[in-house]
């Protein structure tokens, strides 16, 4: 690990000033991603600004009937929060599908959004990688790419965003609150992460020095009609090959509205509003769900090792929508999929 200087921020303003004034400075929260990457010299910050003592640990009700989650709320506390369990079980389930109990205790809400890809070449400083070293090439294209993207990839990068929580946040249409040297702003979740294009080094639209202060959720809408379905190479403590966060608003047996986001398939949680529109006014059925899946995966392209993801994702979408319609969400401790 490269040497770095360290400072503990006592206030939000102090933290922002410290990072925005130094291009080599970085925030550190739970450290579960940054410390790991620093050990491999993938990340080499010159100074770390510790934000863990900032007062960003509350989950507060909003005037609009939603909640505002402080950036430092640990993933485990968020998943087990009584309001989240009751009103946003999709979020709780997605969080509990990720990492391990130990990691969830340390990982924070803000840090989870900013975790970096698990692409093997990104981690290997001896390999070419446009994300880590812009212009060096992409080891994964034509290389080992079982875990890589089937949607929205570019000639420069085919990495996926590894978060489970973010897939649920996309389906729940969260809003990210940030504060920076120029003041505060909010970013709609779909605009937060970006596709790689010819700038894969930028995972998201946050500017240097901007601090995530909170993630806000609108009022709950899906009642019991939701699920988080995660498929992976082993049954726990592994990143998603494909995951689906689904929520349905049902009126009798008619779908009034739907939200579906895919994880493990693109550089960001993948949503296609037209696929959701297709479901409106339909009765839950395999055919209707199949058509939505078809639309979600339109343009999907395999890279060789990950070709299987296209069919896997298609089937996972159908199954997840069936689970959501039946109000039988996947339990993360239940390893059979019904």
């Amino acid at each position: 690990m490269m040497n770095f200087s360290y400072a503990r921020a006592e206030s939000v303003g102090e933290a922002i000033a410290a990072v925005s004034g130094d291009p080599h400075a970085r925030y550190i929260a739970g450290g579960t991603n940054l410390v790991d990457l620093m050990k491999y010299d993938v990340e080499r910050p010159g100074r770390l600004v510790d934000i863990t003592r900032l007062p960003l640990r509350e989950i507060a009700a909003t005037a609009g009937g939603g909640i505002r989650i402080g950036a430092l709320v640990p993933n485990s506390d968020l998943a087990y929060d009584a309001r989240v369990e009751r009103d946003y079980p999709l979020l709780a389930s997605a969080i509990l599908a990720g990492a391990s109990a130990q990691l969830r205790n340390a990982a924070t809400t803000g840090g989870n959004l900013l975790q970096r890809t698990r692409c093997y070449y990104f981690y290997d400083v001896g390999a070419p990688c446009n994300k880590r070293a812009p212009g060096s090439g992409c080891g994964a294209i034509g290389g080992v790419n079982r875990i890589h993207a089937i949607l929205g990839a570019s000639e420069s990068c085919i990495a996926t965003h590894p978060s489970d929580m973010c897939v649920a946040l996309a389906a729940l249409e969260a809003v990210v609150h940030v504060a920076g040297p120029g003041g505060e702003r909010t970013i709609a979740f779909e605009d937060f992460h970006r596709l790689p294009g010819d700038r894969p080094e930028a995972d998201n639209t946050l500017r240097h020095g901007e601090l995530i202060t909170a993630v806000e959720l609108p009022a709950p809408r899906f009642g019991p009609h939701h699920t988080y379905l995660k498929l992976r190479d082993r049954l726990s403590y592994a990143f998603a090959l494909v995951s689906v966060a689904a929520g349905l608003e049902l009126e009798g047996d008619t779908i009034r509205d739907a939200r579906v986001a895919l994880g493990g398939v693109a550089h960001k949680p993948w949503r296609v509003p037209e696929a959701e529109t297709l479901l409106r006014g339909q009765k839950p059925s395999r055919e209707a769900f199949g058509a939505a899946a078809e639309r979600l995966l339109q343009g999907a392209r395999g890279q060789g090792d990950n070709d299987f993801k296209i069919e896997l994702a298609r089937r996972a979408v159908v199954r997840a929508l069936e689970q959501a319609a039946a109000a039988t969400p996947q339990r993360q401790s239940d390893k059979s999929i019904n």
Partner: peptide, 27 residues
């Protein structure tokens, strides 16, 4: 593993289980 991938380093910090390999002492 020294990477958060195995749990061998699990300790309790303020009563909560965490991977000590990913915790900076200074923090």
């Amino acid at each position: 593993c020294d990477q958060g991938q195995c749990g061998a380093c699990t300790v309790l910090i303020d009563g909560r289980r965490v991977n000590s390999c990913l915790q900076l002492a200074v923090m």
